[in-house]
Amino acid sequence: MARYTPPEQSKAGQVFDIAVVVVAIFVALWLPLKLGLAGAAKSIDALDAKTWEALGQNPTMASIWEKLGYTPETAHDIIQNRFHYIIDWPTLIIMAAVLIGYFIFLFRASDREYRDVINEKFDDK
């Protein structure tokens, strides 16, 4: 197999490629934040009676909260702020499909490139 000689990349081309990568990184990390997609479903289950007992805290727990500077009123929003785990099947299926598709593409395309590498490396010798 003929040895593959890559084209030399111009300075401008190099700078452009770096810019592409940087922009891509910022978009990938930035977009979810901007669109408000980040973060799990957590919401406060409000209680009327704001006492340690009502919040499910025994005397030991209550004494520690107080040591940390909390009262039942201020601790209420922390203790009652709960996750609500709901399995949203369509999203789960999309996620699984995206992940599996991504890995399949990775391995298949890599294998194609890898065969070139092995051919060139071991047939030259």
Binding site: A28, L35, L37, A38, G39, D88, V98
Partner: peptide, 14 residues
């Protein structure tokens, strides 16, 4: 997925 599913999809898309 239970916490940050959309972020995961966005990252894999990237």
């Amino acid at each position: 997925f239970l916490g940050f599913g959309s972020q995961l999809i966005a990252m894999v898309a990237f």
